[in-house]
């Protein structure tokens, strides 16, 4: 009997939780705010689903109920992607080490 592909996805999911666990514990507490803004940005990779939904209509019918929800989701996710990465960049640029005296 063949293994259901769902099991493979579940394996990826469970292993990624463990990776997340160890990676996030090694994040220095002073960078916890940038951590939140960058996780925000990357979770907006949900945009791939929005794009699929948006492009699903045929060329005569670009706008149907499903694709409109797709288009709206694209904008929402894009706000997050651009906003999240840029604000993280802005924050990280501020973290500086002490200037060496003399």
């Amino acid at each position: 009997m063949e293994i259901d592909p769902f099991i493979f996805r579940l394996s990826i999911f469970i292993l990624s939780i463990f990776i997340g666990y160890y990676v996030v514990w090694s994040v220095t507490p002073s960078l916890h705010t940038p951590l939140m803004s960058v996780t925000n940005a990357i979770s907006s990779v949900i945009i791939v689903g929005a794009i699929i939904a948006g492009l699903a209509g045929n060329s005569d019918f670009i706008f149907n109920t499903s694709s409109i929800f797709g288009f709206l989701a694209i904008s929402l996710a894009a706000i997050n992607i651009f906003g999240g990465f840029l604000v993280t960049q802005r924050m990280l640029a501020m973290y500086k080490k002490k200037k060496k005296d003399k």
């Binding site: 999911f13 990357i42 990779v45």
Partner: peptide
């Protein structure tokens, strides 16, 4: 999406 969701 699965990897990211688990990480976040």
């Amino acid at each position: 999406l699965i990897i990211t969701g688990a990480l976040v």
